[in-house]
Design a protein around this nucleic acid. Structure first.
Lengths: 222, 222
DNA sequence: TCACGTAGGAGTATCGCGTACGCCAACGAA
DNA sequence: TTCGTTGGCGTACGCGATACTCCTACGTGA
């Protein structure tokens, strides 16, 4: 047993996150991470097979920090909302990692854990397997879409000003809407977008449960 | 007026799309696009300032192909759904361009045109500026999220199998849900996810219009 | 028809990044 | 202490983006 390993994957992921926070998305380079860890570039390859793997570690590290316990909450919609918001918080802390998250979420173990937690809540709320699949996709889509929009999109933050300044002639609605959106925070937007979706799912589920009368056939999860 | 320009930005974007379709996301290189156009690498720089700009052209080209007319449809929800689906179709035709779309949508003029069309429908449906901003964000989030999930995510397509094969012990719900999702097409998923959101927005709008009684204050767009 | 000027086309070179290879040192066990 | 294994690292190569510069082709005005 000659010589213990001096680095863990978590330490590496933390270093990468530090680099991301400091130098931005484009600043994430193998050299930079190695320097952050105080070692030569190639030493890093003893622990990480390559850049792909490094990015995967970062994403997993972020998602692993998300607490998936929701025991304290009553309504299932509140539970899922909490799960969604916790993802958002973690992501908020490292905005430069958003592109990585969007692209590598599917291969992160912690992402599976989160998905499992959401599906568990859905199952307890009475969603059958098929309806659950659909609901999960909608939720995941809204969460990822909101994060994507929040970080790349223009409707919140400085982009709002740019849009509001558009010529009224070519883009009257965008200009007006952007102006009206000035006061909104991303936090509030996220909450309402996801919340609205969850309410809709809840209504659907209740209708399914109460009146199993087959009205609007084919619209629900069977 | 010596010598006309021999390339248009559209031709360049088309060439880039051809390269994307053939060589994938990572295959989009300045060299490749120049070769596709039958010229030397550096000649391309006469027309395009750099790679960033090239990617922007590609995104704009795709979105410009989206028809934004919805005169033939009655319900506002159907109009927005049609606009959303048309984006999806265009993207379907060039899957390798999805990462570009997600990252550069905000800076594409054609994206503004699309957004303007959506907002116009929302305005005609009776959404006030503030509520419209929120609805737009929700719709945009769901559309982009669905596209993102469809192309990176595992719940539809081959990924479904991988998830369904997960050990029941560690991820019982994911495994079961993925198995149940086997028959679903991405098309149907997209339609239902966006449709559900639109129905929810429609219900909200109707409640606002009919009973302007201020129940559940602060939940709606004011 | 011809000569001239502007803009296009392309070669070369540089820079930065990921990473394969191989050397040496450090640490643990015998 | 000595040997075997593993960690740390310097060097070097391949590749992609792009600045600089020269040569060429086309269109125009005479």
């Amino acid at each position: 047993m000659p010589r213990p390993r001096s680095l863990t994957e978590d330490r590496i992921a933390d270093a990468a996150l530090a680099v991301l926070d400091r130098d931005g998305t484009d600043g994430l380079k193998m050299r930079a991470v190695a320097a952050e860890l105080g070692m030569g570039t190639m030493s890093l390859y003893r622990y990480v097979s390559g850049r792909e793997r490094l990015e995967g570690l970062v994403v997993d590290r972020m998602l692993a920090a998300v607490d998936t316990g929701t025991g304290e909450l009553e309504r299932w919609t509140d539970r899922v909302l909490a799960l969604a918001e916790r993802v958002r918080w973690v992501v908020q802390a490292h905005p430069a990692a958003v592109p990585l998250l969007l692209g590598r979420r599917h291969s992160a173990p912690a992402s599976l854990r989160w998905g499992e937690a959401v599906l568990e809540v859905l199952a307890e709320a009475g969603f059958g397997p098929r309806h659950r699949a659909f609901a999960f996709r909608a939720i995941l889509g809204q969460v990822m879409g909101a994060l994507q929009a929040e970080h790349f999109g223009p409707l919140i933050g400085e982009g709002t000003e740019a849009l509001a300044a558009l010529p009224r002639e070519s883009h009257p609605y965008l200009a007006e809407t952007a102006a009206a959106a000035r006061g909104l925070t991303a936090e509030e937007e996220f909450r309402r977008c996801v919340g609205l979706l969850l309410e809709a799912l809840d209504r659907e589920a209740r209708e399914d449960r109460e009146g199993a009368d087959g009205s609007r056939p084919g619209t629900r999860g069977r």
